[in-house]
Design a protein around this nucleic acid. Structure first.
Lengths: 144, 144
DNA sequence: GACACAGTTGCAAAGATTCTCAACTGGAAT
DNA sequence: ATTCCAGTTGAGAATCTTTGCAACTGTGTC
C-alpha cells in the first residue's frame, strides 16, 4: 500500500473512487489547494474561494478540509495554538519534522518506519488505515 | 516492542525543573489527571476541578493542558472533530494506536522506531525534542 | 432529458479554544 | 517575615470549528 509518483494528483478521481460527490465548492477548494505553495488556514482558503464563487460558506471549507484530511489528501498542522493550516499531501505519503523554533515543516519518508509500524499494528491485532508521525526538533547548531 | 505500565510520576518535580510555578490550580489539575483512568476533555477536567476549588477558570484548564502537553507530561487526542481529550503520559514515553471504530487508545512502544526517528532527524540536521506517532487502525476480523 | 434520493450546502447558532488585561501570587532575595 | 516582580490567573471577549436543519444538487436509473 504505497504510492510512488510525485505528480499533481487527480483528486477528483480519488474522490469519486471514495464515493464522494464532486460539487462546485469542492472543485474550487481543490483547485486552490493544488495551485498554492503555502500552508493556508481555513479562513484564507475561504477568502480565496469566495473570489471565485461568493456563495461558498466557511462551513463548507471546514467540512471539505475534514473530508480531505480523512482521505489523506491533505495534512493539517496546528502550530502553537493558532488555527489549523493545511497543505496538500503529495502523491506519496510522507511524515513531518517540525522545527520548534521557526515552525518550518520538513517532509520525509522512511520505508523502514512504515514497515515497523505495520508489524506493530499487526501484533496488536490491527490493520493500519493511516498514521501520523511528527518529529519536533531543533536545528543542530555546531557554531556554539 | 513492549507495553508500558502505570506509574505515578512526580509532576511537581518535573514542573519545578522546567522552571514552572506550582500554583493551586495546577496542583488540582495535576491531581485530577494522575487519579483518573479515562481520557477527559477540557470541560470534564474543568468540572472536576471546580468541585475542589470553584474559583478555577476554564481558561486555566486549557492553558495548563497546553503547558503539560509541551512538556510531554500529557497527550492530546482529537477524534473526528470532537473536543480534544487528554491522558497523562506515564513515566515512560509511548506511542498510540487508535481504533478508528471505537476510539479506543492502545499504548505501545518500540525502541526500534525511536532509534530510527533519531537517525532520520540527525540526517536532516535536527535534534528531536519530542515526537508524536499515532497509528489509526481497524481491528483485524478473523471471523468473516 | 426527467426523476428520485442520498449527499451536500449555506446559514445561523452552538461549541471549543485562545486571547487580552488588570489583579493576584509563588518563590527568590533580603 | 517582607518585599518584589515575572509568571499566572479569572473573566469575558474574540476567534476558531462544528453542528442542526431546510433547501439544493450530483449522480444513478429510466
Amino acid at each position: 500500500m504505497k504510492h510512488t509518483f510525485n505528480q499533481k494528483p487527480d483528486y477528483e478521481k480519488e474522490l469519486r473512487n471514495a464515493g464522494v460527490r464532486i460539487t462546485r465548492p469542492r472543485r474550487i477548494i481543490l483547485d486552490i489547494l493544488t495551485s498554492t505553495e503555502d500552508h493556508p488556514d481555513a479562513m484564507k482558503i475561504f477568502h480565496r474561494a469566495i473570489e471565485i464563487d461568493d456563495s461558498i460558506s466557511l462551513s463548507t471549507v471546514y467540512r471539505t478540509m475534514n473530508l480531505l484530511e480523512e482521505m489523506g489528501a491533505i495534512h493539517r498542522h496546528a502550530f502553537n495554538g493558532g488555527p489549523s493550516r493545511f497543505e496538500q499531501a503529495h502523491g506519496e505519503h510522507h511524515d513531518h519534522l517540525i522545527d520548534v523554533d521557526t515552525g518550518a515543516v520538513i517532509e520525509f519518508k522512511s520505508d523502514k518506519i512504515e514497515k515497523l509500524q505495520e508489524e506493530i499494528a499487526k501484533s496488536l491485532g490491527y490493520d493500519i488505515i493511516h498514521h501520523r508521525l511528527e518529529l519536533y526538533g531543533r536545528k543542530i547548531d555546531r557554531s556554539s
